[in-house]
Amino acid sequence: MPSANALPQNAQSALDGWIAAAAPVVEKICGTSEAGWAQVRASYMSGLNHLFPAPEGVTFGAMALDSVSAMTVVPEGKTQGRVLLYIHGGGYVHGGVEGYRGLTGRLASALNAEVYAPDYRQAPEFPFPTPIDDVFAAYRALLSSGVDPHNLVLAGDSAGGAMVVTIMRKARDAGIALPAAGVAFSPWANLTHSGLSATVRDGIDPLCSVDFLNKLARMFLAGELPTHPDASPVFADVHDLAPILVQIGENEVMLSDAIRLAANLGEARVRTSLEVWPGMFHVWHLLAGILPDADQALRNAVRFLDDALHAGAQRDGRRTSI
Score class of each variant (00 low, 15 high):
His150Phe: 05
Leu103Glu: 00
Pro229Trp: 14
Ala113Pro: 07
Leu152Asn: 01
Ala184Phe: 04
Thr192Pro: 08
Ala138Val: 07
His228Phe: 12
Thr199Asn: 09
Leu142Asp: 14
Pro127Met: 12
Ala162Leu: 09
Leu221Phe: 09
Trp188Met: 04
Val147Ile: 14
Ala113Phe: 01
Ala155Lys: 01
Arg169Tyr: 12
Tyr120Ala: 07
Leu196His: 15
Asn214Gln: 11
Arg218Thr: 11
Thr166His: 05
His150Glu: 12
Phe220Lys: 03
Phe128Asn: 00
Glu114Cys: 08
His228Gln: 11
Ala174Glu: 06
Arg218Asn: 02
Asp173Thr: 00
His193Tyr: 14
Ala162Tyr: 08
Gly203Val: 10
Ser232Asp: 06
Asn112Gly: 07
Asn151Arg: 14
Val165His: 06
Phe128Thr: 12
Ala113Arg: 00
Leu142Tyr: 11
Cys208Thr: 15
Thr227Met: 03
Cys208Ile: 15
Ala231Asn: 03
Ala113Leu: 08
Pro206Asp: 07
Leu216Asn: 04
Ala217Gly: 04
Tyr120Val: 12
Ala189Met: 09
Gly223Phe: 09
Asp202Met: 05
Gly102Tyr: 10
Ala198Pro: 11
Pro124Cys: 11
Asp211Ser: 09
Val210Met: 02
Ser232Gln: 06
Thr227Gln: 08
Met219Ala: 12
Ser158Trp: 09
Leu107Met: 10
Asp133Arg: 10
Val183His: 02
Leu221His: 12
Leu207Met: 15
Thr199Cys: 00
Val115Phe: 04
Arg218Ser: 06
Pro124Phe: 12
Trp188Gly: 06
Ile176Leu: 11
Ala189Gly: 01
Val210Gly: 02
Ala117Lys: 00
Leu207Ile: 14
Phe185Thr: 10
Thr104Met: 12
Arg201Val: 01
Gly146Gln: 15
Pro131Tyr: 06
Phe212Glu: 05
Leu225Cys: 14
Arg121Tyr: 10
Asp134Arg: 01
Phe235Glu: 07
Tyr139Gln: 10
Phe128Arg: 10
Ser232Trp: 09
Gly195Ala: 08
Thr192Tyr: 01
Val164Gly: 02
Thr104Gln: 07
Arg101Lys: 13
Ser197His: 07
Gly203Lys: 07
Asp157His: 04
Gln122Trp: 14
Val183Gly: 00
Asp133Pro: 13
Ala174Thr: 05
Pro206Gln: 06
Val147Asn: 05
Tyr139Ala: 11
Trp188Ser: 02
Ser194Gly: 08
Lys170Pro: 00
Arg101Met: 00
Leu216Asp: 08
Arg106Asn: 15
Leu196Val: 15
Glu114Met: 09
Thr166Tyr: 14
Ala141Glu: 10
Gly156Glu: 02
Ser158Arg: 08
Ala110Ser: 12
Ala181Ile: 13
Asp134Cys: 09
Asp148Lys: 02
Arg218Asp: 04
Val234Phe: 13
Pro129Met: 12
Arg106Thr: 13
His193Ile: 03
Ala159Asn: 01
Leu103Ser: 07
Val164Phe: 02
Ser197Gln: 06
Ser209Asn: 03
Leu111Asp: 07
Arg140Gln: 14
Phe185Pro: 05
Ala174Lys: 04
Pro206Gly: 08
Gly105Leu: 13
Ala222Val: 03
Ala222Pro: 03
Asp237Ala: 15
Ala137Cys: 14
Leu111Gly: 02
Val153Thr: 06
Leu178Gln: 03
Pro226Met: 10
Arg169Asp: 00
Val147Cys: 09
Asp133Ser: 13
Arg106Pro: 08
Ser232Pro: 11
Lys170Thr: 06
His150Lys: 10
Arg106Leu: 05
Asp205Lys: 04
Lys170His: 09
Leu225Val: 01
Ile167Pro: 04
Ser186Ala: 05
Leu196Tyr: 10
